[in-house]
Structures are given as structure tokens and as C-alpha cells.
Design a protein around this nucleic acid. Structure first.
Lengths: 295, 295
DNA sequence: TAAATAGTGTCTGTGAGACAATATGAG
DNA sequence: CTCATATTGTCTCACAGACACTATTTA
């Protein structure tokens, strides 16, 4: 490359002389919503265990939001990508590695961190409860798995000239051994004849730090969307599982009951039979399946 | 909030004393893939015009990548969100405002900008060719609308122990009055029994700056995906349009031919009839529709 | 009248929803 | 034998793919 710029410099010369300007720069954090599924004890030994969707939160030990619960995360360092930073945090917090990791959205609202200018590049991770055992409670920071519930609370639609504004308010509840956090997140869709836009806002926030309620809402919606047309839910399953367990996971994610026959047809290509069966179930044993890695 | 931290400070005191640390911070750019659809002149006055999908590129006037073509974009400033920065750039480059704008992905590969540490928070914008007229050629920087073609070039699948690696190579071609840019982008999906990941890489790059070939690939894939289950394509249409024109836009985005009857059934709820018709078409006139803002 | 496109009708197969019927192990 | 779940069968309905047919304008 021998092109010369306005100052008569080659690219190499330009780069040698380049000094980062004095523009203010943001800090960029990688924050993660780490999902897992756990069993809730059943009433009777003959009944099946119910499944719960949980996410990992960490209690803040310093200002700001001292004592509130936050998503695990940390700043991206100069010689890593945001994804590597997320993977590093995941390893530090849970000890697990090599799991499903997907970038969600980059939040950059001004003032979202009261200290300084911080953007959050958010990720979603899915880990199965097998791996989970490794790290029950470990280091100094207080961490806990919160049971998650996310449901539509209110739906509003206002017609404007030239379009409408639709607002969906969702209630986010997180609970873990006595702790109960609650938030309401509003998703506003503005449709005009020319443009369309979606915007999240926190309507109510009790116990969560920063704008993390938004990030969690964003993660659940992504998860719910992808459950229906990918094999993403299989990342929440252990090596071997029954189809009923898989169905329970689909149900707890989407918040809907599914019909058994239709469900089995739908996931038929995503799983592969094994010759193993459940034992001592108090009823007919169930065939165990594993994730199908064919197509 | 009267909680005190380890140093006995309230949150207010903490924030008053807070000084941004000396950690190195990245610059964050908002880069945009601006799509539009234009008509290509037909051979005969009786034939319909074909549609072309185009994106806006800007020729770099300084190092690095002097003379190469880059996506419009710029650094996010301290008192704006990344989205506002994208909207601002869009306004500066095209003069249009109030269009469909969607965040795509944040790219943070190390070394993606040879000058310094720069992340790119990328956006996709859709504008219709009506608005386009406003700004044909305007300011100092050389800008041009490039016709876009993106097709699967090669597909490879390698079985590993415990999973497989699938690589899809796409050819990206951009052309505008003599200029012809070409790139090959590989999308690698790694599936193991535990994890799954997707990764983009630039295999070949002729004429595009930075990692912008990746960003463009990412945008096309998002657009192709969403065309099938949202009304996103309507943002590329003028106020009034025929169903055949809309079908052409669907076809040029997805790269597939569609059947007329099925297509009309599919978009029936997304559009609304008007009482206007095309004129002087050299054949039967066509009813004009507009975007339906009902549901 | 011919060319070219607009717009509609209908057959068929696929697949999801719904529900029913049968199977099996623990106790 | 009963409980509770596992697993399979099948009926119906909605809908997309495929193709054909009719309608309407301009030159």
C-alpha cells in the first residue's frame, strides 16, 4: 500500500505517528445473563420433579447499588474481545467453560452507570445443571441462583396520527431463599408510516442494580424466541434426559403448556435415542435421549 | 440510601469522590449498513423494472484504508447513546431522519482497527427510495450506493470427535458504476455436545475497509431472516406500491423466487388497499397498497 | 389482437393441534 | 390391580406450494 494521504504519509508512516486522540472514551463492560434449569422437589415420590428457570446474580459489595443484586460481568480489557471477557467472567463466577454463549445487545443509555460513562455489551449463557454442581458457593462475593418469572402484566395501544404506540409491560420476579426481587419493564413499539422502533424502559425496580432488569428482560425474550426455531434449549439439558424433561424445559422457558404428541414430533430431529432408561421412577421408565449432532 | 460501604461512605459521598480509573478504554464507533431498493431500467417499456438492493458506502479520504470503501459511521460521543450516534450519522450522510433503525452486533476483535482499540456497535437502517432522492451527491466525502449480491459459495462440514464444524462461505459483491468490490466471509458453526458457537471470518477482502465485510454480511443475514416473519421489508417501500413491487423486494432480499398467489396470501395482513392504481404501464394497471398500521 | 402483467380459484400435501388409546414399572 | 407416567396412533383443520385460469390495459 503506497498511497499517500493529505499529509504525504504512507499508511505505515501514518500508523507509526498515530496517537490516540483526547476524545473521551466509554468503559465497556461485558455483562451476562447465565441461565440454568433446576429441579424443584416434587410432592410425592411418584410425581415428577418440576423444572425451574434460574439465573445467576451477584450481590454488590460496594457503591453504587451497594447491597443490590447485579448480573455477573466486568470490564473488557485491552487485549481481549467482549466475548472473551464474557467467557472469562463466566469461568470466574461459575467455574464452567465451553458453554453456549451469545451476544444480546449493547446498552449505552447515558447515565446508566452513575460513576462514569459505561456501556454494557450483554451476553446470554446457557449451562446445564450437571456442570452447575461444580461450584455451589465459593468465593468472597455473594452469589445466588434466582428463580425467574417473567409475564405480561399490561398491554396498551394508543393510536396517534400516522401510526400507533404499543406498550407491553412485563413483570420480572426473581426469588432465591427469602430474597425476592421485582421489576417491571416496559417495551414500547412505535409504529409510524415511515419508521418503526422498539424501546425498553424500567418502570419499577426493586432490588436490581443498574439497568440490569432491562438486560434480563432482553435475554428472556431472546431465549423465548429462539426456543421455537432452534435447538437452543438443549444446552440447558444434561448429557442424558427424557423427552418429558425436555418438554418441561420448553414449557418453563416459553411459559406455555405444550401437547405431548406435537412436542415429540417437533423435537424428533433435535435429539437422538439412547438405549438407557430411567429407573425407580414409581411408574413406567422413560427412554433417555441425547442431543443430536447430525444436521 | 444510607448504606455505608467498606470505607464508611454513603453512595452519594462515594460518587462525589469517584474518579474514573486509569484503565484503558476503547473507542466505540457506531457503524451503519443503510439499505435501500432501487429500480433497474427495464429492457422494454412493457416490461417491469427490476429491483436492486443497495447499501451506502463512503470512500475513505485518509489512513488507514485510504481509498477503500467503508460503512458510514463515527464515534459515539459522551452525551449520546450508540443509537443516537447512529441516527446522527444517518442524518449527516443521507439527510433522512425517522427511519427503521436496528442494532445488529458489537464487533470487538482486537486489532480490527490498526490505529487504536475500537469497537464497532453496528446498526442496520432501511430507507425507501422516495426519501433517497433528497440527497443524490452532496458533500466532500465521496459516497455511493452499491448494488449488493450475497450468495453461498461453499459449504463444508467436518466431523470431529464429539461434534462437528460447519463452515459456510459467502461471496459478497458490491458494485457501483465501474467500482466492483468483492469479499468472501466464512461463517463457522462449531457444535459440540456441550457448547455451540458461531464465528465470522473474512477469507478474502478486495476494496472494503476494516472488518466491514463482516458487518455487511451480518446485516444481510439479519435482513433475510426478518423478512420472513416481520413486516420489515415494508420500510423499503415508498408510501404507495404495488404487490408485485413488494414481492420483488422480498425476492431481491431473500434471493429466491416466490409464487405470486402464496406471496399475496402471506402479506395480506401487512398491507392495506388504496383506491389508486398504476397508470400507463403498457399492460393491466395494478392496485396500489400502503403499509397496514393496524396490528 | 397481442403482449404483458394483475388478480383469483383450487387441488394437494404437510404439519400442528387435539384427543384417544395402549404400554409399563413400582408397590 | 392401581397409579402415574411413557409412547404411539389418528382425525381434523389451517396453510403453503403448485399450477391454472380469468381480467385488463396499452400499443
Amino acid at each position: 500500500m503506497d498511497l499517500l494521504d493529505r499529509d504525504g504519509l504512507t499508511e505505515r508512516e501514518f500508523l507509526e505517528r498515530y496517537r490516540a486522540g483526547d476524545y473521551e472514551r466509554p468503559s465497556v463492560a461485558a455483562d451476562m445473563v447465565i441461565f440454568t434449569v433446576t429441579d424443584e422437589e416434587a410432592d410425592s415420590y411418584r410425581k415428577l420433579a418440576e423444572k425451574e428457570l434460574r439465573i445467576l446474580l451477584i450481590r454488590r459489595g460496594g457503591h453504587p447499588y451497594l447491597g443490590k443484586w447485579a448480573l455477573p460481568g466486568g470490564f473488557v480489557r485491552p487485549n481481549e474481545t467482549a466475548e472473551q471477557a464474557a467467557a472469562r467472567e463466566l469461568r470466574e463466577e461459575t467455574g464452567v467453560d465451553d458453554v453456549y454463549l451469545e451476544q444480546l445487545y449493547t446498552f449505552s443509555d447515558i447515565g446508566r452507570d452513575p460513576r462514569t460513562w459505561v456501556m454494557s455489551c450483554s451476553y446470554m449463557a446457557l449451562i446445564n445443571s450437571d456442570k452447575l454442581e461444580l461450584k455451589a458457593g465459593d468465593d468472597a462475593a455473594e452469589a445466588a441462583w434466582f428463580k425467574l418469572s417473567y409475564r405480561l402484566l399490561r398491554e396498551r395501544k394508543e393510536l396517534a396520527e400516522d401510526g400507533y404506540v404499543k406498550t407491553l409491560e412485563y413483570e420480572l420476579k426473581l426469588s432465591s431463599e427469602g430474597e425476592e426481587l421485582k421489576a417491571v419493564v416496559a417495551r414500547t413499539m412505535t409504529a409510524k408510516s415511515t419508521s418503526t422502533g422498539t424501546d425498553y424502559a424500567i418502570v419499577l425496580n426493586d432490588g436490581l442494580a443498574f439497568d440490569h432488569a432491562k438486560i434480563i428482560a432482553c435475554a428472556i425474550e431472546r431465549l423465548r424466541g429462539k426456543v421455537n426455531y432452534t435447538d437452543i434449549a438443549l444446552h440447558l439439558m444434561p448429557k442424558l434426559f427424557t423427552l418429558t424433561e425436555l418438554q418441561q424445559v420448553y414449557e418453563v422457558i416459553s411459559g406455555k403448556e405444550l401437547l405431548k404428541a406435537a412436542f415429540r414430533r417437533k423435537v424428533a430431529d433435535l435429539v437422538a435415542e439412547t438405549d438407557h432408561y430411567t429407573e425407580n421412577a414409581g411408574h413406567r421408565p422413560s427412554r433417555l435421549y441425547r442431543r443430536n449432532l447430525e444436521d
